[in-house]
Structures are given as C-alpha cells and as structure tokens.
Design a protein around this nucleic acid. Structure first.
Lengths: 132, 132, 132, 132
DNA sequence: GTGGTCTAGACCACT
DNA sequence: GTGGTCTAGACCACG
C-alpha cells in the first residue's frame, strides 16, 4: 500500500517537491525505508497525488544528489545502501533547528513549559494510536 | 536597547519580512510589547540588520493590516491598544500547526518521545537563563 | 562581458543544465569566479543562449545545493564565500576519472604515449593563445 | 579468458550499452580484436557482468550497423573482415573530441600543463604494467 | 516499463 | 528587478 507512503498538501507554503524530499529523507534515515527498497515510480506518485511527474522527479533527483537514493537504470529508484540508516543522535540533529525555533517562539508567546510539553506529548500519542 | 528586539537570519529559509512579522506578532500578543509602545523606525531596523528598508516596511504594514500595529502620524508605528493581548489558549493556537508538523517529523524519524521532550525542555531552560 | 562566461552546445550529449553546472563549478573552484561575485541572472543567461530560463535555474540550484553558490534573496546568485577556492591537488581530483578513462581508451586504441601527449599539449597551447 | 574482455561499470554515467560499444570499437579498429575473431555470446557477456542480455544485444547490433561486426548464422558475432583495422591517424580522430573537452576542463580548473601531462603519462605507464 | 530533459508559459515570492 | 514553483506536453534514453 504505497498509497499512504507520502502525504502531500498542495496548498501548504512548503513547495510540494520539498515536502516529498523531507518526508522521504526522514523515512530513509530512520530505516522505515530500507536500503535496496524500491520507491514507487515517478508516474505512480504523480498520479496518486494529482501532481506533475516532473515535480516528483525533481524530489527524487535531489535525494539522489544527497546519495540517499540511487538510480537503477531503466528500473527506477531504490534506497541507497551506504550510510542510509542513521543513529538516533544523527536523526536528532535533523530536528535541532526546528526545536530551536520552537523554543524561541514559545518564549516569545510567554507560554509555560509544561503546557507546551503536555500538548506535544498528546499529539505524539495521537500519532501512535493512528498508526497502531 | 532596541538592538536586541529582533533576531534576523538573512540566510534562513523563512523570508526576512516574515521573520519580523512573526517575532513582533508573538511579542505583541503575549504583552511583551505593550499597547502604545513605540517601535523602532524602519530605518533603524534596516540599518541595524543590514537589510532593505522596504523589507521592514512591508513587515510593519502587514502587522498594521492585522491591527496589531497602528501608524501614528509623524511618530512612527506603535502597538495597537485594542485586542492586542491574547489569552494563553489563543496564543497556544498560534503554535498548533508547528506542533503538528513537529510531531509528524518526530515519528518519521522514529525518535523516542522522552528524548525529544527532554531536549525541548533543555532548550527552554537555556532560553530562560539567557534572559534572566 | 558576461557574454563569454559560458559555452553551451545545445546538441551535445551532455544535458545543457549539466554543461552549465560543470563549467561554473570549475571556474569557482579555480578562483576564476571569486567569492562574493555575482552571477549573470537566470534570464540573462537564458536569453544569451536561447535556452529556457528553467534550465539555467536548475543549474544554479544544483550549485547552490553543493554550497558553491548562495542565493541572495531578491538580488540573484553569488559565489559562496566558504571553501569555494580549492588547492591544485583538489582540483586535480576533479579530473582523475576523466584521465583514467582517457588512459584506458588510448591503450585500447593502441596509440603511442608521446603521440597523444603531444596532441594534448598542442590543444592546451591553442587554448592559451585564444585567451591571451 | 573472455572474462577480462570487457569492463562494465553499471553505476557510471555512461550507459552500459555504450560502454560496450566503445570498448569493442576501439579494440576492433586497433586490431586487438582481429577480423574473423568470434565474440562471446550475448548470454555469456550478460551473465558475467550481471546485466540485461538486451543491453548486450543492443551493443552488438549497433556495431553490426557500423559494419564492425557481422552476424554469422548459428555461430554468433564475429569481427568483420573489411576495413576494420584503422591507421593511427584515424584512431587518433576517435580521441579528438575527448581531448578538446579535456583541454577546456584543464584550463577552467587552472591546472598547469606539465602537472596534467605527467599524471596522464603515469596512468599510461600503470596500464602498461598491468598488461605486461 | 523506468527516469531525464527541455520548452512555453503562468503565477508567485522576495527585495 | 531577482529567483522559485508548477503545469502540460513533447521527446529521448535506458533496460
């Protein structure tokens, strides 16, 4: 069920190709997409989400440039074997800038620490239930 | 010491005018900037951060459009009196989209909940110390 | 005279965007394009060579991804300050794969070493005269 | 020992079928593969290098189209008798485009002529030793 | 079947 | 003015 692999928000401020890049990057470095695993074809993804194939292709190419995907000539893209799965520490690094910005926003809004932590915890539990 | 009022990162992905808008908005709705308080002039802000005055002006105009700032003839922009300070619940709403995106990213990265909450807590403490 | 900055061969097997990427990369790492120097605009390059602006933009974006160019918001692309100029040794590395392939081709063609070296030397002198 | 006849790099930018075409062409025009000599079967080559038989077949067909190979009914492909061995001058022509591109790249990288010629000379000596 | 390249043109975002 | 994004569609290259 590749149908649920990606979530695209066409109206979001973040460009579509980057939504794809970032979701795939996170799933690759966490090992949810395993080395050697084949990605859905450009045309499939484009068709499922009613977007232009070139937009998908652009995302794949960028990930190829990061050496997270490799092009298997004539047969599509697969997850790269080398250095694709990262340690928890490395994955945490990917989150650092967001956490810094968030901490700053929280203090500018004068919100209490437990209030925000509770809410975030709750959202994470919601996610876990949805995928359980 | 207006010098420290805003933090601008010209190379950040978020456009400069929006960095200004969002920082000011948060400080206004939380009451850190009080109704009637005068903002630094466009020229001052532009000079301090070496950015284009039009960029600052645009940010001020947007906040004026939200009725968070008012243009005082001859004396520059001041924080609006009406409805500028919000309840904790309203302020929390401003954070919701970020928290949703963050929760999603955390799960795609397969990071543990306590790990992330601890780190966020730590960043908030760092902020508090810096401003103490 | 930016007119002569790039040489595009639309009929070459190598895609246009990559011709641009590789020429610029070599000129940046060699210091012929200096840190901070502004590149001709996407529209200029596209107009001069009668190609689509998106093709040029794609090349610029790839170099931005390599951190060889930086986007100056609203004002165009400039050569990155950090690590743009490389040592002779590093530049030589960029040539190694080509030299290996070439050596292999020369031996498969059973050409004599001096014959080829002389010819290459001559072509380099021709280049030097053209730019003198 | 046909095993060493071809060197295939599946991940190289040059397509596999063209790697085969060019290596064989060079060995034919130089006389390393002699008129009448039988080539390994499509199936053999494909098996040895773990590539698609159609890819090998395509390469053989292209060389047949250049009249460098002939299809011998029932016995596979053999090197063509006519006009297969070329003069040194003709073989040099096959190298000209690469040498031009190389000269250009060398100058864009601002490398010194002797530096590059020495390195190329060294690579050629390495090749000679390997085949001695 | 796969992905890649390029175009023409629209529209947006930023300064 | 600058670059960015996306589309629709054509055509190519590869296996």
């Amino acid at each position: 069920m590749d149908a649920a692999l990606l979530t695209i928000a066409p109206a979001a401020p973040e460009p579509i190709y980057r939504q794809i890049v970032e979701q795939l990057r996170r799933m690759i470095v966490s090992g949810q997409l395993k080395p050697g695993e084949r990605l859905p074809s450009v045309r499939d993804v484009a068709g499922q989400h009613a977007i232009n194939p070139m937009t998908v292709s652009r995302a794949y190419s960028l990930l190829e440039g990061e050496s997270l995907l490799v092009r298997q000539r004539g047969t599509g893209m697969t997850v790269a074997a080398t250095r694709s799965t990262h340690s928890a520490h490395e994955r945490m690094q990917l989150l650092e800038p967001r956490l810094h910005d968030l901490a700053r926003a929280i203090r500018e809004l004068e919100l209490s620490t437990p209030h925000v932590l509770d809410r975030l915890n709750q959202l994470l539990e919601d996610q876990d239930e949805r995928h359980a």
